[in-house]
C-alpha cells in the first residue's frame, strides 16, 4: 500500500513536469510544424545559467526568473536564426519532396542540440553539479509517518498548474493567442487575415522555450546537472506528446501524466533500468492503437 501511494505521488509530481515538456513540444509542432529535438538542450542550457547565478550568491528566484526569460529568448533566437531561414528556403532539387522538407528541420534541431550540449560542456565543465530546490525534498510528516509527498512536489505541481492555466488563458482570451491558434490551424487563412505568421511562429518558440526551461528547473534538483541530464526528459516528453496527440496541448498534459505514472510504477514495482523499455513499449502501443494520439486530430501527416 505504501509503495502504491509513493508511486502515485511520485507519478503525479513527475508527470506534471513531463506534461510541461510535452506541452513545449506540442506548442512548437502546432505553431511551426517542427518537432524540436533541441528543446531539452535549451532547457539544460538555461538551467546552467540559473545554476551559475545561484552559485555566485544570487537568490534562487533570480536564477529562476532569468532561466525562464533566457529560455524564451533562446527559443526565439533559434527560430529566427535557424528555423525561419529553413522554412523560407526555395524549393531546390533536394527540398522538392515533402519528406525531405520535413526531415531538414529535425536534422537542424539535432544540430542545435549538439551545439548547446557542447557549449555547455565547454563553458560549465563536464563535471556534474547539483541544482537546488526552493522547497524541502523530505516527505511531510503526518501523525508521525513520513509521507511520500514533499514540499518540493507541491511546488512542482503548483508551478505546472499555474503555467497550464496561464497558457490556456493566453490562447483562449488574447488576440495574440488567437493569432497563434489560427496560424497553427491554417497558415494561409491566417496570413490572409493579416496575421504576421513569422512572428507567431517565433512566439511559439519563445513560449515553448520558457515552458521547457521551467521543466528543466524542476527536473534537475532530483538528479544532477550535466550537458546530457535532460536528454531522457526529451524522450519521455516526445512519447507523452505522441500518446496525447502531437497537436493537442490538453493531450500533451494528459500524456505527460500517463508517462509519469507508467515510469513511476515501473520504478517502484520493477527496476528503474526498465524505464527505457517501458517508454518504448508505451510509444509503440500508442502508435499502433491510436496513431494520432488520444486527443490529436486524425491527420497524422500534417507537415
Amino acid at each position: 500500500m505504501d509503495t502504491f501511494l509513493s508511486a502515485i505521488f511520485s507519478g503525479t509530481s513527475r508527470g506534471a513536469i513531463f506534461a510541461l515538456v510535452a506541452l513545449g513540444l506540442v506548442l512548437v509542432w502546432r505553431g511551426a510544424g517542427i518537432v524540436n529535438f533541441a528543446q531539452m538542450g535549451q532547457a539544460m542550457f538555461t538551467t546552467y545559467i540559473a545554476s551559475t547565478l545561484i552559485a555566485n550568491g544570487n537568490s534562487y528566484w533570480i536564477g529562476f526568473v532569468v532561466a525562464l526569460v533566457s529560455g524564451a529568448a533562446l527559443g526565439s533566437i533559434l527560430d529566427v536564426l535557424v528555423m525561419r531561414p529553413l522554412s523560407n528556403k526555395k524549393k531546390t532539387e533536394l527540398l522538392s519532396s515533402d519528406s525531405m522538407r520535413a526531415a531538414i528541420p529535425v536534422i537542424a534541431s539535432l544540430g542545435i542540440l549538439g551545439v548547446l550540449q557542447a557549449l555547455a560542456g565547454i563553458i560549465w565543465a563536464a563535471e556534474e553539479r547539483g541544482f537546488p530546490a526552493p522547497a524541502k525534498q523530505e516527505g511531510f510528516t503526518v501523525a508521525g509517518n513520513v509521507m511520500p509527498f514533499t514540499a518540493f512536489d507541491v511546488f512542482v505541481i503548483t508551478c505546472v498548474a499555474i503555467t497550464l492555466i496561464l497558457t490556456s488563458l493566453f490562447f483562449k482570451r488574447t488576440g495574440m493567442g488567437l493569432a497563434m491558434r489560427a496560424t497553427a490551424l491554417n497558415q494561409e487563412v491566417a496570413k490572409l487575415s493579416g496575421i504576421r505568421t513569422n512572428r507567431t511562429r517565433t512566439l511559439s518558440w519563445a513560449i515553448s522555450g520558457a515552458a521547457s526551461s521551467l521543466a528543466g528547473l524542476l527536473l534537475t534538483p532530483s538528479s544532477n546537472l550535466s550537458p546530457n541530464t535532460l536528454d531522457l526528459a526529451l524522450f519521455i516528453g516526445f512519447t507523452a506528446a505522441v500518446v496525447g496527440g502531437l497537436d493537442s496541448p490538453v493531450g500533451a498534459v494528459l500524456g505527460g501524466f500517463i508517462l509519469g505514472m507508467v515510469i513511476s510504477f515501473v520504478t517502484f514495482y520493477d527496476t528503474p533500468e526498465d524505464v527505457f523499455l517501458a517508454i518504448l513499449a508505451v510509444l509503440l502501443l500508442s502508435l499502433i492503437i491510436r496513431p494520432h494520439g488520444i486527443l490529436g486530430s486524425k491527420d497524422v501527416r500534417r507537415v
Partner: peptide, 11 residues
C-alpha cells in the same frame, strides 16, 4: 512519417 518516425526511432 516525418518527426513521428524520427522520434520513435530515437526512443
Amino acid at each position: 512519417s516525418g518527426p513521428y518516425l524520427a522520434g520513435t526511432t530515437l526512443v
